[in-house]
Amino acid sequence: MSEEQKIHQQAGEPSPTRRRGPRAVFAALRGFVVAQPLGAVALVFVTAFVLVAVFAPLLAPYDPLEQFRREILQPPSGRFPLGTDDLGRDVLSRTIHGASTSLLIGVVTTAMSLVLGTTIGVISGYFGRVVDVVLQRVMDAVQAVPGIVLLLFIAVILGPSIRNTIIALTVVITPSFNRIARGEALRVREERYIEAARATGATIGRILVRHVLPNMFAPVFTLGSLIFAGVIIAESALSFLGIGAPPPTPSWGLMLSEGVRYVERAPWLIIVPAVVLSLAVFGFNLIGDALRDHLDPRLAGRVSPRSVRPRWWRGRPPSRLAPTLARAVERAEGDPGEGPPTTSTR
């Protein structure tokens, strides 16, 4: 015993304090890719989108605002791979820079409404009573106004600019985060480990930051990625309506709105931004779904449908599938009370 302790003291001293660093990140990533192959595909999409957005100035062949006056509405060619628009601007360059606009608005709006909504929701859910009632009624009031009306209202008052688009979207989206954060805070605050933390004398601030917030991270983060997709669409919609990013800005929504006029002469003007927009939104939605499944502890414990399938799938005639499938589902749900009917007497 004492020898063992000595050995551990010698060997254990320089050991790292926690499992962190690049290896842990890689391991977590590998776990995600293995468990959620569709999510992995989406991850590739999203990574590509982010890289393009970040390195737009390096990737775009032209300045997105440069007008080649002699080459208006040119179809895709060697010089302009995705054609030019009605002012002779390169569609590829504008699309690439449009990714930056979308990323900027998406990231800032999502981050701001996540922080704001989560803060309000956690305070509301954890403290309850009067605080909860007051905060929730304010949130209800914001949610009671249709999103598009509120967006129009704010955008019209503040005027079209990227900053104002972000402010308007943040106001509209904050209640979503508030709602999920409040629900999670209500759940987590009843957990035994919160009571245990209180019993060890932790301050309210410490309990909230160290124990409540980390334990509600998964659903909030998942909502974040879904909201991100929504923000990109909303930004495009606002720009399409002419109350989002102001005209010279390279924005997918603006490109769509400008391109609609030439839909018969130059369909690439709307096909390109529409396809790119769809792919980006699709990617973020897929990632959101995959994250939800991957991070939800209730789903993680279950047998996934894929591991159930092979049991009845292998060359069985369809007539014999139903009972086998029923049993497989029973097993997957793991309910011992509802075992196979052979032993049941009830």
């Binding site: 926690r18 957990e191 480990y193 245990a196 933390a197 124990h211 980390p214 334990n215």
Partner: peptide, 9 residues
């Protein structure tokens, strides 16, 4: 089991 925070060592 439930008195320990599952996320921390």
């Amino acid at each position: 089991m439930s008195s320990l925070d599952p996320l921390f060592t």
